[in-house]
Write a protein that binds this DNA or RNA. Sequence first.
DNA 1: TTTGTTGTGTTATGCTATAACGTGTGCCAT
DNA 2: ATGGCACACGTTATAGCATAACACAACAAA
Lengths: 132, 132
Amino acid sequence: MTQLTKNQDLVLGALKRSEAPLSAYVILDKLRDHGFRAPLQVYRALEKLIEMGLVHRLESLNAFVACAHSGESCCSHHGTVAFAICNACGHVMEFHDHTVEHRLSDWARGKGFKQEKTTIEIRGLCATCAAA
Amino acid sequence: MTQLTKNQDLVLGALKRSEAPLSAYVILDKLRDHGFRAPLQVYRALEKLIEMGLVHRLESLNAFVACAHSGESCCSHHGTVAFAICNACGHVMEFHDHTVEHRLSDWARGKGFKQEKTTIEIRGLCATCAAA
DNA sequence: TTTGTTGTGTTATGCTATAACGTGTGCCAT
DNA sequence: ATGGCACACGTTATAGCATAACACAACAAA
């Protein structure tokens, strides 16, 4: 585990403190007091954090979350991760399903498609918001 | 099957003629000769076409494709659709996997999560580009 | 005819992301 | 030690994606 730089640490901290995913520009605003002035400072930190697997990008939201499994040495670090995103409260559940992962890999192999990154995002209402 | 409006027909036509997904702004440029002047004309048509299931939005690309199964009365019209997107040539394969779909539905049901829309996108290299 | 709905057009604006350039720092091979 | 390199950082400008707000026209239902 490489040491994080100051900016990376600040961005990751902002994401960890947040209940919901944050856009790059929201992160920027949260970190203005720490010297952040430009989007690139955020995007550059995010890029590295994503490479390290500490942060995920939610494609359907153009936003970012801290990985829910940081610290664990669970398989989720290396495989495909899935997300359930509540459209009402914004809460995100990160999970992992070997069956789905293998099924998609099998499809790709069958087509000769070389899989690089897989996005799985379920949008809807979490149990709490669905009840309300 | 409702009749399409002129703008919807133009947008759908542009997508059908394209090998690769198109962004809203690329569609706009392609349709300037037909009187399109503003992004909203495109976005409004896309919104309806997506509702009708004739067009899909690719979240990881912020772009749009014509549904590969238009005309057929295949189950894919109503269920979750998955995409494999080639990072090199931009070609998109649309497919459908009941196992994956059910597996994700089961997960959602187990969590009390009310599924509204599910995104599955595999980014990578198609067989042709992987070979090259 | 009035009213409501839907599609349309236009202008302006906001949000998301990256290009291009320059600076400073630490490392290490010569 | 010093020159060269890699890398994080900072700044300005710009590109690309999406929607708000307002106005008008066509048409169907009451």
